[in-house]
Amino acid sequence: MYYSTMLSLLLPGHVHLRAQVEEVLDLIQQQADHGALDLQRLSGYIINTMASLCAPIRDPKIRTLQDLSDPVELLKVIFRVLGLIKADMVNFTVQSLRPHLLQQAVQYEQAKFQEILLKQSVSPTFVLNRAYLRLLSWDPNNQTYPETVLMDRARLEVLEQRLSLLVLQASVLLLNSTQCGATVFSSQGFVCKLKQTITALLEGSHNR
């Protein structure tokens, strides 16, 4: 299991090291078949190989392995450190590929956007306006905010709060106009005073 994990850490250029690991693996298998497995030699080889593969940040972990004398505990910690080294290599690979993946993602999005424009004959201005309108009802808990407008997020959230307030005010005014009747609703100063009252009641409502 340890050697299969180490083999998975090797890069295509590690031809000599891969051959060496496989050779030692065959030798250990022969020893195990004859009941003569040398655990000290096995653990020593694993530790040395790990030291050549790991990032400098894992050197202290490797040094602690050399101080363990209990074979069972040593093999447990070896497997744990192997997992850390594998995670480091995966993260390094992802970071290395990230610029290429982002470029591919941009090209894919551009191609899909162009495909939509050709099929639906929608103008770019219409799409942009619709996108900004969607931002005014954006749910940050369930949707990731678009990276292209992160710099304007604060201003857009203020506009979203104002829009919500206007919708609530309009809803209350509409409800009152149908319930109170035209006579009361058309009274001088009634609508203005009602709007002021609504605004005062709804102040800070977006934080609740």
Rank of each mutant, 00 (worst) to 15 (best):
M50S: 04
M50C: 11
M50F: 02
A51V: 01
C54R: 02
C54T: 07
A55V: 12
P56V: 15
D59A: 13
D59V: 14
P60A: 12
I62T: 03
R63V: 10
T64V: 14
L65N: 03
Q66R: 15
Q66V: 09
D67Q: 13
L68T: 00
S69P: 01
D70P: 02
D70K: 04
P71M: 06
V72F: 10
V72K: 12
E73H: 08
E73P: 00
L74G: 00
L75C: 09
V77N: 10
I78Q: 00
F79A: 11
R80Q: 09
G83R: 07
G83P: 01
L84Q: 12
K86A: 06
K86Q: 14
A87R: 11
A87E: 15
D88R: 01
V90G: 00
N91C: 05
N91V: 15
N91H: 15
T93R: 15
T93A: 13
T93K: 10
L97I: 06
R98Y: 08
H100Q: 12
L101W: 07
L101K: 05
L102M: 10
Q103A: 11
Q104C: 08
A105G: 04
V106E: 12
Q107R: 08
Q107T: 13
Y108P: 03
E109Y: 12
E109M: 12
E109V: 09
A111H: 07
K112I: 10
F113A: 12
Q114W: 00
I116N: 05
L117S: 02
K119L: 13
Q120N: 06
S121I: 05
S121A: 08
V122C: 06
S123M: 14
N129K: 06
L133V: 05
R134C: 04
L135F: 04
L135V: 07
L136A: 02
S137T: 11
S137D: 09
W138G: 01
P140G: 06
Q143H: 10
T144K: 10
Y145S: 05
Y145V: 04
Y145M: 04
T148D: 13
L150H: 07
L150C: 06
A154T: 11
A154V: 12
A154H: 06
R155M: 13
L156R: 01
E157S: 05
V158Q: 14
Q161Y: 02
